[in-house]
């Protein structure tokens, strides 16, 4: 197993899939000459050429819309939206076109499209550029929504997304490209819609994903020093949502904390808590707690922004509260 960065893992997945299947191509702003805003596609243009590494105008609707069309006629596009905040510009295509095609025409058409994008706050980019609106997208049946928290999962899930016959929104975190982790050698995929226990424990179940996984892992280290062993379930996919491991863990620990980066209202935590209550109400020994972002557009000021975002200490505190 090699230890590589999240950036490298995503880059390798794209590269290997493009080598494997000539129908896979990427398009988006600054993916070519610039080498990717987050340097994920550095070197791609030189290697694969302009046909398969397509710089686009600043036109998110067209980036996703054309991706849908190309996918419908047999290509395997990876449309890149620089940040998830700009996905709102392409909202119709992401939620109202891509997820509808297959079902609405009775299964005649398919849209094997991947929309890669980066979300998250904490980089002092202000209110319009710092959001984690994952739950909005996960609301729509017909779309698959994936958001990995480790390099291993990022690589495996991106490969699975590219090979998937349905539209997949692949949400990366703009502040996580440098994190490192072990990645298996050779070709592998990680199934979409399967969550995973990332750390075992018996005291409290933490259900989380993406940046929340990082926070939770750090919180788990601190708690462990105090003799509290938490179990961390990483959702990895928000739709389809696999509740199996979270439910099994909750039945064991009888306590749960859900950690997400976005706002709590109508969010991932709200969904997961409801499902735990629906399926295992009798197992609950304490009310389930949510750790999330304060309900405010994120400010630019660094300290104020961090204050609005969930921190490791918030996770630690929430775990102690449900204990």
């Amino acid at each position: 197993m090699a230890i590589i960065t999240m950036r490298q893992a995503i880059s390798d997945a794209l590269w290997e899939e493009m080598e494997r299947d000539p129908k896979v191509f990427i398009m988006g702003q600054e993916v070519g000459v610039w080498g990717g805003t987050y340097a994920v596609t550095k070197g791609f243009l030189d290697h694969f050429g302009e046909k398969r590494v397509r710089d686009t105008p600043i036109a998110e609707s067209a980036i996703v819309g054309a991706g849908i069309g190309a996918a419908m006629v047999g290509l395997r596009p990876v449309s890149e939206i620089m940040t998830i905040n700009f996905a709102f510009v392409a909202m119709d295509y992401i939620v109202n076109e891509a997820p509808k095609m297959h079902t609405m025409f009775g299964g005649q058409m398919k849209v094997p499209l991947v929309i890669r994008t980066a979300g998250g706050g904490g980089r002092q980019l202000g209110a319009t550029h710092s959001q984690t609106p994952d739950a909005i997208f996960a609301h729509f049946p017909g779309l698959k929504v994936v958001s990995p928290g480790t390099p291993e999962d990022a690589k495996g899930l991106l490969k699975a997304a590219i090979r998937d016959d349905d539209p997949v929104l692949f949400i990366e975190h703009a502040a996580m490209y440098q994190i490192r982790g072990e990645v298996p050698e050779g070709d592998y995929t990680t199934p979409i819609g399967v969550s995973k226990v990332q750390r075992e424990g018996d005291a409290v179940t933490i259900v989380t994903y993406c940046k929340g996984l990082q926070l939770s892992m750090q919180a788990a280290e601190q708690l462990s020093q105090e003799g509290i062993e938490v179990e961390i379930v990483d959702l990895r996919s928000l739709r389809p949502l696999d509740m199996g491991p979270a439910l099994a863990s909750f039945k064991k620990t009888n306590r749960a904390v859900i950690v997400e980066e976005g706002w709590p209202s109508y969010g991932v935590g709200a969904e997961v808590a409801t499902r735990l209550y629906e399926a295992a109400f009798d197992y609950a020994d304490a009310p389930i707690k949510r750790v999330a972002q304060k309900e405010v557009p994120l400010p630019y000021n660094a300290a104020l922004e961090q204050y609005a975002l969930a921190q490791v200490e918030d996770v630690v505190a929430a775990v102690k509260e449900v204990l």
């Binding site: 510009v89 980019l125 319009t128």
Partner: peptide
């Protein structure tokens, strides 16, 4: 902008200047 906006979001409505906007177009 009281430290909320940063580089991309400066405005002064009293001067008929309606800002700095960060979503292209």
């Amino acid at each position: 902008s009281k430290g909320r906006g940063g580089s991309m979001h400066m405005a002064d409505v009293t001067k008929n200047y309606w800002g700095g906007h960060a979503i292209v177009g």
